[in-house]
Write a protein that binds this DNA or RNA. Structure first.
Length: 857
RNA sequence: GGACGAUUGGCUCAGCGGUAGAGCACCACAUUGACAUUGUGGGGGUCACUGGUUCGAUCCCAGUAUCGUCCA
């Protein structure tokens, strides 16, 4: 318990690496599954193995660390479990890009070699983000670090696949799926991003003469795959044509005109082409009406099999050529160009998605999604903030079956084997396929394994101690942007795999970090910021505090470097205040003196501390990070530094401050504890230095002491603050320099007068005998001063007139209310009393100020 | 097209049925001690618009406008 000296100034880089290493080495982050303490569990939203720490991670992780550290201090067995996601497409793309630089494709290497290459890459440069998490100060349990492609997590994947398959919740079917012609794989609905693109809307006449119909399309190139034309069954324009056939131009095939409810008669001409193999809506209609599937494009999005001149053209090239040809044939009735409409793009490479008829594996989501919705509906799982719950319901209640097969090599290979005679078997963990069987070449969607994260990371399907202790997890903290991608899927699989126990108790959704003007960060805009640069420049605590302070539930936040600098200033403030306290003998040793024995200043700060502790703890516990940060910031800076330390300086200077030394020590000790979850580094350094304790990480969370609440002390200090502020203002108006000492005295009731010397000390007044030349009145309290020279009458008059105007205005608004019969009759008593008090106070002010103005001559 | 949210000082955002708040920015003064990564004082908003409810509306309700996000 040897106390150390505090360095003269706060340099984050001097303390952060040392403290983090110490925490890890001491095992403070490691959770104990055999502990009798109540568990608190958070699993990290696993960053991509290809990823770098971006500002969104910094926010997400700051909030998680805040909660984890607070709960740990509150006596929970806190586990924050870290790990990474293998990120199928993203990772495969990165490694393929590296190969491309050498002029190679993955096919040159072959599947086995390629996958080996990805693992190698993962080992050497993947997981950079883990190092970056350490810079941020994340108190994650490194001994439990997980990776979706690890052995145990892969076992979990096999287990659940088989379980779902056995319950007929996984099936294989030929459907229209989203296809990326560049990645050459199927995509799920949510891996498709819709953008408003400029296209064209061409109306084409099918058939001739009487037997003709005009269809409008944005995708003319697919017309060669048309199997029908569809109209709404009630559309009067086309009644006579339903059931007949028209000629399909270019390929000169007769196709039927069918009637289907799906057609919107108000859209375009009310007649649409039905291209069963190349459009999901058309597919549905085609199934209903037995329309043939005509495939006219290969997997690269190149026209193929039409038997026309267009074969071999890229789809976009073909679109132009087809329209040109139709024009030539006189079949184009109208053209709208540009025509803005929503087009799907691959979320990984931005290529325009091509709907493609193909055989894929699907999860039948209806029963799973129902359960996922119900868990929130019946309150077993809470979504914070509540406003975002409708979005969740909208999605889980209207979810399509989930396409889970991907034509990739990097990922969990689908555990389905096909026999020589068309047998299909699913090979679970520990099982093997019979000889002569071949495994499905595809892998599973990355989100399939991510959906298992809350329990696969705890050892499931094995009934591990971790699983028993830490499942279900307490809170899931993540951005609202992956509510659908990830959260809903964890809910579905968690409920399914864990016998109806949802994977978490509360889903805490935060927003996105935007630039200082509230614009979305993007590489193309060049407004992306690097959290590591900020950590280097201002320290991790400053970045964390800024992010927490900006984090209102479910809302995006703007971030500017200036705000981070402001947080760094706050850290510096804490540092300097602690140095000052230590210089003046603040201590945590010995009992806190009985509150009755303390002066009002000490009573006041203890009261404020209790209030702050209560508010702050409540706010953090309800995920109100911004408001919590605001509360603690103002307590530390305003109450503690600007007022308490200032008001106590006289006591310290007089050498008679034993109680205050102890109170200050107590307040600092508690403040460090409260701030530790958000600013772990500086608080650890200050606390261990100041108290000589081993670590703040395991110190107990402050408890509100109601016996410290003291309204009368608060009222008294409020009075002192008013007096001080008014006298300062007077000095300022009179041009008296802040450092200049002038004679002064207070004429005040005893309870205020008692603190004359404290006030005089910070107002730079000398309590000596003198003849007053000026005075400041604050209600019943008067401060007389000797300006030893001419008072600036004009400045004084200006000020008094301004005060008078304000008082008169306030009186007027109060009297309007009091003269309003409706108000007097219906307003609650306490409000009326308040207005009456205001009337009395402003009346007194007006009298006083008027008298002062008259005295000025 | 559907849904949700937003509109408050120069900027970014809190708040809320009873005299408008913060941070940053701005103006003035101050540098022999905790802190210029500072202190003190100050200026600045008819709370998008139009109606309604109410004794009282920035806050509740309806409509309008603009912006944003998600879904189709």
């Amino acid at each position: 318990m040897t106390k150390r000296e505090l360095a003269p100034s706060f340099i984050p880089a001097d303390i952060e690496p040392r403290l983090y290493q110490h925490w890890v080495d001491s095992g403070y982050f490691t959770a104990d599954s055999s502990s009798p303490k109540e568990p608190f569990t958070i699993v990290i939203p696993p960053p991509n193995v290809t990823g770098n720490l971006h500002i969104g991670h910094a926010l997400d992780q700051t909030l998680q660390d805040c909660l984890t550290r607070m709960k740990r201090m509150q006596g929970y067995e806190a586990l924050w479990l870290p790990g990474m996601d293998h990120a199928g497409i993203a990772t495969q793309n990165v490694v393929e890009k590296q190969l491309a630089a050498q002029g190679l494709t993955r096919h040159d290497l072959g599947r086995e070699e390629f996958v080996k290459k990805v693992w190698e890459w993962k080992a050497e440069s993947g997981g950079q983000i883990l190092g970056q998490m350490k810079r941020l100060g994340d108190s994650v349990d490194w001994s439990r670090e997980a990776f979706t492609m690890n052995e145990t997590l892969s076992q979990a994947v096999l287990t659940i696949f088989k379980k779902l398959y056995d319950q007929e919740l996984i099936y294989r079917a030929e459907r229209i799926i989203n296809w990326c012609p560049r990645c050459l794989t199927a995509l799920s609905d949510i891996e498709v991003e819709h953008q408003d693109d400029e296209g064209e809307f061409v109306s084409v006449r099918y058939g001739d003469g009487e037997q003709s119909i005009v269809v409008a399309t944005t995708r003319a190139e697919t017309m060669m795959g048309d199997g029908a034309v569809a109209v709404h069954p009630d559309d009067p324009r086309y009644q006579h044509m339903i059931g007949t056939e028209v000629l399909l131009p270019l390929v000169n095939r007769m196709i039927p005109i069918i009637a289907d409810e799906l057609v919107d008669p108000d859209f375009g001409t009310g007649a649409v082409k039905v291209t069963a193999a190349h459009d999901p809506n058309d597919f549905e209609m085609a199934v209903r009406h037995n329309v043939p599937f005509v495939v006219i494009m290969n997997e690269h999005g190149v026209m193929d099999g039409t038997g026309t001149e267009f074969d071999g053209m890229d789809r976009f090239e073909a679109r132009v050529a087809v329209v040109a040809k139709l024009k030539e044939l006189g079949r184009v009735v109208a053209e709208k160009r540009p025509y803005i409409h929503a087009v799907g793009h691959c979320s990984r490479c931005d290529t325009t998605v091509e709907p493609r008829l193909s055989k894929q594996w699907f999860v039948k989501v209806a029963p799973l999604a129902k359960a996922a919705g119900d868990a929130v509906r019946d309150g077993r799982v809470k979504i914070e903030p509540e406003e975002l719950a409708p979005r969740y319901f909208e999605w889980v209640d209207g979810m399509h079956d989930w396409c889970i097969s991907r034509q990739l090599w990097w990922g969990h290979r689908i555990p389905v084997w096909y026999g020589p005679n068309g047998e299909v078997i699913v090979v679970g963990p520990g099982e093997s396929a019979p000889a002569g069987y071949e495994q499905d070449p595809d892998v599973l969607d990355t989100w399939f394994s991510s959906a298992l994260w809350p329990f696969s990371t705890l050892g499931w399907p094995n009934q591990t101690e971790d699983l028993k202790k830490f499942y279900p997890t307490s809170v899931l903290v993540t951005g609202y942007d992956i509510l659908f991608f990830w959260v809903a899927r964890m809910m579905m699989f968690g409920l399914f795999a864990m016998d109806g126990v949802p994977p978490f108790g509360t889903i805490v959704l935060h927003g996105l970090v935007r630039d200082q003007f509230g614009k979305k960060m993007s590489k193309s805009k060049g407004n992306v910021v690097d959290p590591l640069e900020f950590i280097d420049k201002y320290g991790a605590d400053a970045l964390r505090f800024t992010l927490a302070r900006g984090s209102n539930p479910g809302k995006d936040q703007a971030l500017a470097e200036d705000w981070i600098a402001g947080s760094r200033n706050f850290a510096t403030k804490l540092w300097n205040a602690t140095r000052f306290a230590m210089m003046n003998g603040a201590t945590v040793e010995g009992d806190l003196p009985a509150v009755d024995s303390l002066n009002a200043i000490d009573k006041w700060i203890l009261s404020r501390l209790s209030e702050t502790t209560a508010q702050y703890t409540e706010l953090l516990s309800t995920y109100e990070f911004a408001r919590a940060s605001e509360v603690i910031y103002h307590f530390a800076w305003d109450d503690l530094c600007d007022w308490y330390l200032e008001l106590s300086k006289e006591a310290f200077a007089s050498g008679n401050a034993q109680s205050t030394q102890r109170v200050l020590g107590f307040v600092l000790d508690q403040l460090f504890r409260l701030l530790h979850p958000v600013m772990p580094f500086i608080t650890e350094e200050l606390w261990t230095t100041f108290t000589g304790g081993e670590t703040l990480m395991n110190a107990s969370w402050p408890i509100v002491d109601v016996s410290h609440l003291d309204k009368s002390a608060e009222e008294l200090i409020t009075q002192l603050q008013r007096v001080i502020t008014e006298v300062r203002r007077f000095r300022n108006d009179q041009g008296v320099k802040p450092s200049q000492k002038i004679p002064g005295r207070f004429i005040a009731p005893a309870d205020v007068a008692q603190y004359s010397s404290a006030m005089a000390f910070l107002l730079k007044l000398e309590l000596v005998d003198f003849t007053a030349s000026a005075s400041v009145e604050i209600g019943a309290i008067k401060c007389e001063l000797d300006l030893s020279g001419a008072v600036d009458v004009e400045a004084e008059r200006t000020r008094l007139e301004k005060d008078l105007a304000t008082a008169k205005k306030d009186l007027a608004t109060a009297e309007v209310k009091l003269n309003n019969q409706g108000f007097m009759a219906k307003a609650p008593e306490n409000v009326v009393a308040e207005i009456r008090e205001r009337q009395a106070a402003t009346t007194a002010d007006i009298e006083r100020i008027t008298a002062q103005l008259a005295a000025l001559k």
